[in-house]
Computed example of a mutant assay.
Amino acid sequence: MFDIDGIYNSQNDLIWAVNLLAADTNGGIRQKRKFPQKVMVWFAVWSKGVSPLVIFEDGTVDHDRYIKEVLPVALKFGHDTFGADWTFQQDGVKPHIHVKSQEWCEKHFPCFIDKDHWSPSSPDLNPLDYCIWDEIAHQVHWDAVTSKTTLINEMKRAVRKVSLDVVFESCSSWTNRLYRLSQVKGNYLR
């Protein structure tokens, strides 16, 4: 989910400064709208690139919308890119683990990791979570984002600007991350 106020996480984005003026100079004081305009974005990565974007301008994504608007894009991208030999991995959000979504994936994908064989909260094993979303957020020209339309245009531009080296490195680290996660018995990686 991205909104027109940019990326800000009050838990992680801290500015150390001697006073408010110094904090403001360093980008520490941010005004947020009470109800900023938002868009939800879906796309996939593989070691050599990214899939097409699926942008949800309005509303939320339930399993029906996920099945109708996302999974066909993922299937086409997978077949066009890999032919008949590939595996679809998704995370544990509700639209992904819904029984109808799982059934659709089982029926259509050549291979996929079902909800019972994947950790429901696995950001350490998802290149989008541990690398790519942050890369996209840094590629967006947030000063140019003034409306939902400009946010969507910036998202499209930002995805095209993500370095293929960054995508490759984040996907390449997946096997090592899987091993490290097994060593810490499923706890978060440090």
Rank of each mutant, 00 (worst) to 15 (best):
D91I: 10
D80F: 11
W86M: 08
I67M: 02
E57W: 01
W42Y: 06
I113L: 05
E103Y: 15
K100N: 09
C105M: 09
V93H: 11
F77E: 10
Y66V: 12
F82T: 11
W42H: 13
S101F: 13
V99L: 12
I67Y: 03
C111A: 14
F82I: 15
V73L: 10
V54L: 01
K34A: 11
E103W: 09
Y66D: 00
H96C: 07
I97L: 03
G92Q: 01
V45T: 12
T60P: 06
D64I: 04
W42C: 00
K38M: 07
A44C: 13
G78M: 01
D116W: 13
V50A: 07
W86L: 15
L53T: 10
E69G: 01
P110H: 05
G59I: 04
P95F: 02
V61D: 05
Q90D: 08
H108K: 10
I113C: 04
F35Y: 12
P72S: 13
S101H: 04
T81D: 08
H108Y: 14
D80E: 12
E106S: 06
P110W: 02
Q90N: 04
T60N: 14
G49D: 00
K68N: 10
L71Y: 05
H96W: 08
K107V: 12
G78Q: 01
H96G: 00
F43C: 13
V45S: 00
C105F: 04
V73T: 11
F56T: 05
P52W: 01
Q89K: 11
K115D: 01
F77D: 09
K68D: 11
Q89P: 09
D58M: 11
D91T: 05
K68Y: 15
K34G: 15
G49I: 00
V41P: 09
M40G: 14
W46K: 00
F43W: 12
W46M: 02
W86E: 05
F112T: 04
T87D: 00
V73S: 14
H63I: 03
F112Y: 07
A74H: 07
I97S: 08
G49E: 02
G92F: 10
I97H: 05
Q37V: 15
V70Y: 12
K107D: 05
D91M: 10
Y66G: 03
V99P: 03
K48T: 04
D62Q: 01
E69Y: 01
Q102I: 09
P36C: 15
T81E: 09
L53K: 04
F43S: 11
H63Q: 15
T81F: 02
W46T: 00
V54K: 15
Q90E: 06
P36D: 10
I113P: 02
K100W: 06
V70N: 06
F35D: 13
E69M: 01
K34F: 15
Q89F: 14
V61E: 00
V41M: 11
V39C: 11
H96T: 06
G92P: 01
K94H: 10
G83Q: 07
H96N: 06
V50F: 13
D58F: 05
F112G: 05
D116C: 07
V99C: 14
I113W: 02
I55L: 08
Q37E: 10
R33Y: 07
E106G: 14
F109W: 04
H96A: 12
E103M: 09
